[in-house]
């Protein structure tokens, strides 16, 4: 059973220096900005962050990088017109970059969550990004061995949660959330909305609650923080 809180600060308080953190989002869509900003306030440093990008603009992941908290970033598309905070630190040699093709990044995360020890992928075969990696010819085609990306923490954003941690997402803000939720020891999700148990149609649950450890209720619906657990299932507390 996950913890339900309205405090992003409480949710990230246990994250130590040196942690590896999967952070959801594709650009700004699906980026758990409130959790990242709480992490910035919390002060953890020397972090390894896995995200598709290396921050956009001045907020969220960009601010975390700009503040020098990130030692290494694992991503597919770091440089963009608004990635100036990353660009500066990279050019100054202050942040390490592991560049991964986007599908390999996704599959490495998925593999970690699914207990796969590694997989052969055609993506990147014969390129700079496969240098030094084991390769194999399978049915006449070249493949590269890629390893799972596991993390102690995942910070993701979803649209709706119930107190059991079942999640739905909204449009393309889904992106990395569902796979990252599976690949971390502690998955912390911020949501716009919490509804009582039973209010999410089981057919539309995207992330089952088994993958979720902490829910941060940004909308402060009152379902968490001191409300007895049995109230979650009674249907008496409405969103």
């Amino acid at each position: 059973m996950p913890t339900l809180t309205t405090s992003a600060a409480d949710a990230v308080a246990q994250i130590p220096d040196g942690a590896t953190i999967l952070i959801g989002g594709f650009g700004k869509a699906g980026q758990p900005v409130e959790l990242i900003e709480a992490l910035l306030d919390h002060g953890a440093s020397d972090l390894t962050v896995v995200n598709n990008n290396a921050g956009n603009g001045e907020h969220g992941l960009a601010a975390l990088i700009g503040a020098g908290r990130v030692r290494k970033i694992v991503c597919s598309f770091p440089r963009q017109s608004d990635s100036q905070l990353f660009d500066e630190r990279f050019r100054a040699g202050l942040i390490e970059l592991e560049l991964v093709p986007q599908g390999n990044l996704a599959e490495r995360i998925r593999a970690a969550g699914a207990g796969i020890g590694g997989f052969f992928t055609p993506t990147g075969y014969g390129t700079l990004l496969a240098e030094g990696k084991e390769t194999r010819m399978i049915d006449g085609r070249g493949y590269v061995l890629e390893s799972p990306i596991r993390a102690e923490y995942a910070l993701i954003a979803a649209h709706t949660a119930d107190p059991l941690g079942n999640l739905t997402y909204r449009k393309t803000a889904r992106n990395f959330g569902p796979i990252m939720a599976t690949a971390a020891t502690h998955t912390i999700v911020q949501v716009s909305n919490v509804v009582p148990v039973g209010q999410i149609d089981p057919e539309v649950v995207v992330t089952p609650g088994i993958f979720v450890d902490v829910i941060v209720d940004l909308h402060q619906t009152g379902l968490g923080n001191g409300v007895p657990t049995d109230a979650y299932t009674s249907g008496k507390v409405s969103a």
Binding site: E107, R110, R170, K171, R174, N175
Partner: peptide, 27 residues
């Protein structure tokens, strides 16, 4: 809608019959 963007991170629209899926499935 900030939750609905394309690969270039430009806001886009959905057509009838559209579907959404996570990055593992997309790739």
């Amino acid at each position: 809608d900030e939750d609905l963007i394309n690969a270039g991170k430009i806001p886009i629209t959905e057509l009838p019959g559209a579907s959404y899926f996570h990055h593992g499935d997309s790739f």
